[in-house]
Structure formats: structure tokens, C-alpha cells
């Protein structure tokens, strides 16, 4: 092939590669545009304060209302509880992997965490229905489908996220700090709790934030075990509906303002996750400086 056509291929190839790289950016932009385009018209009919702060969600009533506060609170409860349950186990595992585990034990543990993160959410949902819901029913009464059940399942799902990122941070703590602490006569646990964990703090917080993002966006598993009652959740054991559950449940028959309200809910979700991610990016950059 002559030089000219080779050069043409070179130029063309470059453009194709750049275009491919831009697909992701374009997708993010388009997703934002489309969802906002569907969601913003809601506020022609529904005042923003009512949307965010009213617990009255009654789209099919004669005088419809679209307040998503119940769902916001439900999402909070579910994700908050799941972080509460998952954090001790995750941090312990991260500490164990970073500082103690060697060879075979470490390999098995890592493999387990990998597999755990690969299990699809529908399987978690099924497991939740068959095992977690009856458990909650036996211990707390009611019918078992509750925000608590959703939180328990979600906790298992976010374990790998917290463990992986925290482990990296803990391993990155300078060994000379460990040495200094040991040389002063500290026990292993004192060194871990007073020096290593505080030093790894920003990485651990980042992992929690990422886990929070994952938890808040989870749909399938919470839908199957959360009870899906569009009421204000009075306790963790009551049935509830998270923001994601609301979108999925009503979308099949919604129209008009109702549908816009669902997209507005999606916007809310979108903003929240964007904020979380920007927080992590900002925190990482600050640390690197």
C-alpha cells in the first residue's frame, strides 16, 4: 500500500478511536438531557417543595399529589442500615486481608469476595424472599417484607465494594508508621485502631461513599423484599418503597404528570449519585496533592 493511503487510514483511524471514546461522554450527556427533559415538566404542575417534602403520593386520586418524601426516607433507612450492617464486617475483612492473611487463606477469601460481587441482584432478591423475609417475620413479627429485610440483603451486596477499596487504603499505610507504633510497645490492635485505621481514613470513607452510591441505586433486590408500600415508613420493620422501587413499580402504567414525576424521581437519584461521585473525586484529588 502506498504512503498516501496509509496516511489516510491513519487519520481516519484516529477519528474513529476518538469518536468511540466520546461515546461515553455523549451517553452521559444524553442520559442527562433525556431524563431531565422528561422530569422537569413535572414542576409545571407540582411545586418543588411539595415534591420533595410531602409524603402524599397519590397519583391515581381525583386530586393527585406527587410527594416523594416517604420514598426519600425509605431510601435513607435502607441504605443507612445496610451501611451500618456492612461496615464492621467489611472493615474487619479489609484489615484481615491487608495485614494478616497470607497465601491460601488470602486467596480463598479474595476469590469469595469476587464471586460475591458477581452474583446478580435477582439472585439476592430470591434469596431474600426465601430466607431473609421469613427470618425477619419470625424475629420481628409482621409479614417479613420490610425495609429491614432490604437493608440486610443490600448489606451483603455492598460488602465487596467497601472491602476492596478499604483494603487498598489500609495496605497503603506506610510501614514505618506501623514500626514506630510497635517500637513504642503498642499491641497489634492498638496499632491498628490508633494508627493504621486513622491513616487510612480517607480511603475508607471513599469506599463507604461508593457503597452508598451502589446501595441507593439498587432496584431489583429491594423491590422483591421491601414490601413496596407507598407509605411513610414508621420503623425499619415496616414495609416501604424506595425511590428506585417507585420508578419501577409505577412506570408500566404511568402517563402524563405521573410519568413526569417518576422521571423527576430519577433526576433526584441522578443528582444524589453525581454528588457522591464528585465528592469522592474531589477527596481523592485533595489527597493526592
Amino acid at each position: 500500500m502506498d504512503i498516501r493511503s496509509r496516511k489516510r487510514i491513519e487519520r481516519g483511524g484516529r477519528v474513529i478511536l476518538l469518536a468511540s471514546a466520546l461515546v461515553c461522554v455523549a451517553t452521559v450527556a444524553l442520559i442527562t438531557i433525556f431524563i431531565f427533559a422528561q422530569g422537569i415538566p413535572t414542576f409545571r404542575d407540582v411545586p418543588l417543595t411539595e415534591f420533595l417534602f410531602s409524603t402524599n403520593w397519590s397519583p391515581s386520586a381525583a386530586d393527585p399529589h406527587y410527594g416523594v418524601l416517604s420514598f426519600i426516607v425509605a431510601s435513607f433507612i435502607v441504605t443507612g442500615l445496610s451501611l451500618l450492617f456492612a461496615t464492621p464486617i467489611s472493615l474487619a475483612t479489609a484489615v484481615y486481608l491487608a495485614l494478616f492473611a497470607k497465601g491460601r487463606k488470602a486467596a480463598i477469601l479474595r476469590e469469595s469476595i469476587e464471586l460475591l460481587s458477581g452474583i446478580p441482584s435477582i439472585i439476592y432478591g430470591l434469596f431474600g424472599i426465601a430466607v431473609v423475609v421469613p427470618f425477619v417475620r419470625n424475629v420481628f413479627g409482621g409479614n417479613g417484607y420490610s425495609l429491614l429485610s432490604a437493608a440486610l440483603i443490600l448489606a451483603i451486596m455492598i460488602l465487596p465494594t467497601i472491602i476492596n477499596i478499604s483494603e487498598v487504603s489500609i495496605s497503603a499505610v506506610s510501614p514505618s508508621l506501623k514500626e514506630a507504633s510497635v517500637a513504642l510497645g503498642a499491641t497489634t490492635w492498638q496499632t491498628i485502631s490508633r494508627v493504621i485505621l486513622p491513616s487510612a481514613r480517607s480511603g475508607i470513607v471513599a469506599s463507604l461513599v461508593m457503597a452508598l452510591g451502589r446501595a441507593v441505586g439498587e432496584t431489583t433486590a429491594v423491590l422483591l423484599v421491601g414490601g413496596n408500600a407507598p407509605l411513610f415508613p414508621k420503623s425499619p420493620v415496616s414495609m416501604g418503597r424506595t425511590l428506585t422501587m417507585n420508578i419501577v413499580t409505577d412506570m408500566s402504567y404511568a402517563e402524563g404528570v405521573h410519568m413526569s414525576a417518576l422521571f423527576a424521581t430519577a433526576m433526584l437519584l441522578f443528582f444524589f449519585i453525581l454528588a457522591l461521585n464528585l465528592f469522592v473525586i474531589h477527596a481523592t484529588h485533595r489527597r493526592e496533592k
Binding site: 442520559i31 433525556f34 441505586g217 430519577a266 449519585i273
Partner: peptide, 17 residues
């Protein structure tokens, strides 16, 4: 950043899109 954000979006948002 586009890639990072895309990977953080929940699947329901993709579904809506």
C-alpha cells in the same frame, strides 16, 4: 470522568434512558 460517571449510574437510569 464520563467513563467514571457512566459506571456509577444505577441500572434503572439506563433502563429509563
Amino acid at each position: 470522568s464520563g467513563i467514571d460517571i457512566l459506571s456509577a449510574l444505577p441500572s434503572i437510569i439506563f433502563g429509563l434512558f
